[in-house]
């Protein structure tokens, strides 16, 4: 199949009555490693999950758990030191891990877009934001150059930027963080992708702006039937906006469940602890429990099968020896733990 052909790459198989829907993005047993001076970092190991069309999933875990790297790998924007050592990532029928650089370039920004944290530094500081939107439009659409500005202004209007005509000529340093994040969203959504990966989109924004940005993403996703992946360390944020949550720890997916199921019955000790560390309206700040220990050093050659075992209070000798089994509890609720709760 030719990914450069828009009519082909856009095809996302529809669900039919006979079986489960074919996911928009299916990641299977993905492993990523980084070669560094001090050894090979096994950043991701056996990562599997899927994103359905129009669905919003949250990828949750503490800093360094591999959330961002996972999607850098899927979209082919890993650093030169990193490489996918195993697994597949099938997006719209194409295995992205086998795709050529040109195929990936053609998909990024058109079919699957990504926005980042700290929007002020994530935009080119010396290029007008309007031109940055036009760059993406010119790259992925056949918009005639005379129409580019009109399309860019439409993209600015779509993310509800007031006075788009004036903002078109602005540089990122002239705009607030919230406006810059809207510009990022405008760039990402300019070509109406079917998947948006939002990597901590609200980090570095103040609380009211956070809510506005998240509501904007949610609304645009609903209106365009766009699947959204929200990468965050904030379980509360994920609970509010996501249909399903994927919990990651040290490069492993430890638990996947629908949001309600995950909060009602967390099965993995890490998830349970993560929920206990998340403040919400009713709990006392003093009752928040910190998770002991740190992420294990992923360069170690003697990493236990369960990378959480060294921080886990339910640990048993079997956790350090037997291979990590993934168990399904109910439809769509899977846990990678030898002694689930």
């Amino acid at each position: 199949m030719n990914a450069l052909d828009p009519s082909v790459a856009m095809v996302v198989p529809e669900a039919d009555a006979s079986g489960p829907p074919v996911p928009l993005l299916a990641v299977e047993s993905l492993a990523v490693e980084f070669r560094t001076r001090s050894g090979v970092v096994h950043a991701l190991e056996d990562v599997s999950f899927s994103v359905n069309k129009g669905e919003t999933i949250g990828v949750v875990g503490e800093s360094g758990s591999g959330k961002s790297v996972l999607f850098y790998a899927v979209l082919g924007i890993l650093d030169a030191a990193g490489r996918i050592s195993r697994g597949r990532a099938v997006f719209g029928g194409l295995d992205l891990t086998q795709a050529t650089a040109a195929e990936l370039e053609a998909i990024r920004g058109r079919e699957a877009a990504m926005i980042f944290q700290n929007p002020r530094v994530a935009l080119n500081p010396i290029r007008k934001v309007g031109h940055q939107i036009e760059d993406v439009l010119a790259r992925h659409t056949s918009t005639p150059s005379a129409q580019l500005k009109k399309r860019a202004l439409e993209a600015l209007t779509a993310v509800r930027i007031p006075d788009p005509e004036r903002r078109y000529h602005a540089y990122p340093f002239e705009l607030s963080g919230g406006l810059c994040q809207r510009i990022m969203i405008a760039i990402a959504l300019a070509c109406t992708p079917s998947l948006l990966v939002a990597d901590e989109p609200t980090t570095g924004l103040d609380v009211t702006t956070q809510a506005a940005v998240m509501d904007l993403i949610g609304e645009l996703a609903r209106r365009r039937n766009m699947a959204t992946v929200l990468i965050t360390h904030d379980l509360g944020l994920a609970a509010e906006y996501c249909d399903r949550i994927v919990v990651m720890h040290a490069g492993h997916v430890v638990e996947t469940a629908s949001t309600t199921e995950l909060f009602a019955h967390p099965r993995h000790p890490y998830t349970a602890k993560l929920i206990a560390t998340t403040p919400h309206g009713t709990n006392d700040l003093r009752s928040l429990a910190a998770i002991p220990g740190n992420l294990p050093d992923l360069r170690r050659s003697d990493l236990p099968p369960c990378r959480f075992s060294e921080r886990c209070d339910r640990v048993e000798p079997v956790c350090q020896t037997s291979p990590l089994a993934r168990q399904a509890f109910s439809a769509g609720h899977t846990v990678a733990c030898c002694r689930p709760i």
Binding site: L104, E105, R108, G109, P125, D135, R139, M184
Partner: peptide, 11 residues
Amino acid sequence: DFVRTARASGL
């Protein structure tokens, strides 16, 4: 970061 954004946009 902004070069990463540009790459993520498929430029």
